[in-house]
């Protein structure tokens, strides 16, 4: 891993298009500014990993589902009731 020392208002450039700046440092917290092309997604690592982990757990759910009886009477969207392509005017 490359380790660089930077001060407030200094930056690093990754590749040709990604700029990471140190905006502020307060105690043990560093505020970063990130400039990247639209197709480069920037997420906090722990959030990204938490969702990934939760998806893996969700995929292990058995096919045998419980019924939430208190809700079964509620009106629900049918999976096949979505309008055809292009028809987004329906409210």
């Amino acid at each position: 891993m490359l380790i660089l020392s930077r001060k407030v208002d200094e930056s690093i450039i990754i590749g040709d298009e990604i700029l990471v700046s140190i905006v502020d440092i307060k105690g043990d917290q560093v505020k970063l500014g990130i400039q990247a092309p639209k197709d480069v997604k920037v997420y906090r690592q722990e959030v990204y990993e938490a969702i990934q982990q939760e998806n893996l757990a969700a995929a292990r759910t058995s096919a045998d589902l419980p019924e939430i009886k208190r809700l079964s009477g509620k009106k629900r969207t049918k999976a096949q009731d979505t309008p055809d392509s292009g028809d987004t005017s329906q409210r």
Binding site: Q52, A59, K74, A79
Partner: peptide, 21 residues
């Protein structure tokens, strides 16, 4: 879906148990 990036096609089905899909 995160963790399943290689899978791109799904079908949306009603579960037999409300209110799940």
């Amino acid at each position: 879906i995160l963790g399943f990036e290689h899978l791109k096609w799904y079908v949306l089905l009603d579960a037999s148990q409300a209110p799940f899909y």
